[in-house]
Each structure stands twice: as C-alpha cells, then as structure tokens.
Amino acid sequence: MESLVLTTGWMGIFSPLALGAIGSMIGVGRGGLAAAGAMLEVEAGYGRFVGVAAMPSSQTIYGIVVMLTLNRPVSVANSPGLFVLGVLTGVALLISALAQGTACAASISASKSKAEVFGISIAPAAVIEGFAVFVFVFALVLAGSIPR
C-alpha cells in the first residue's frame, strides 16, 4: 500500500511535464498542419505561420518549471499533495495546449487570405495562454505548502 502511495507522488511530480508536453505536441501539430495548408495558398509570409504554430510549446516549459518545483523526496505524507497538484496542473496544461493549437490553426487559416487580421486573430490564442499562466503561477505558489 505504501509503495502505491509513493507511486502517486512520483506521478504527481512528472505529470506537469508529461501532460504539458503531450499537449504541446498535439497543439503544435495542429498549428503546423494549418501552417502547411496556408503555405499552399499564399506566396509570401510563411515565417509568421510557423511562429504562430509554435505557440503551444510554452506549456512544456511551464511543465518543466512546475516539475522542478515539485521535485523533492517522496514520502507517504507528501504524495497525495504532489499527486493532486501535479496531475491537475498537467491536465490543465494539456487542455490549454490543445485549445491553443486549434486557436492558432484558426488564426493561420483566417490570416492567410486577409493579412490585416493577423494580429487580432492570434488574440484568442494569447488569452488561452493567459489561463495556462494562471495554472502555472498558482501551482508554484501551492507547491510551497506541500511538506518536504
């Protein structure tokens, strides 16, 4: 039973990075596919599409920082806290990366034929990034209250 509890603690430590990276992979994949499609329709300005497509990468960086903050000797006392905080942070980062990937794809699709909307069309993706930052910041704050 004790080993099972310790396992959940380790899961909590690595979840923000693992789930955040999975979300980034899928999110960047969505944006990248849209960028590749848009490149078939336009004659110039390919670089900005690639830049927008890479936006969901940040969730992996947040995941790395949260993982390093949660990293500590795992015990029966701190495993439940590590598990809940780590897994929920990871799930939030995963979903935000997926949503951001779709928003980036929509932005690329819209701006390929109407270049003047490029700036405003990435606003939804930036707002989604804001929610991911909330999760990231408050995960760091709460990590301090988990016993070492």
């Binding site: 596919l33 849209a34 960028a35 499609g37 848009a38 794809a105 390929k112 034929s113």
Partner: peptide, 12 residues
C-alpha cells in the same frame, strides 16, 4: 477526423 491542413489550404 480533423483536417487542419486541408481547411487552411482552402480559400474563403
């Protein structure tokens, strides 16, 4: 199925 590349390659 989702078609991110295909939809982005279609004109409005």
């Amino acid at each position: 199925r989702r078609y991110y590349q295909l939809v982005a390659a279609l004109p409005p």
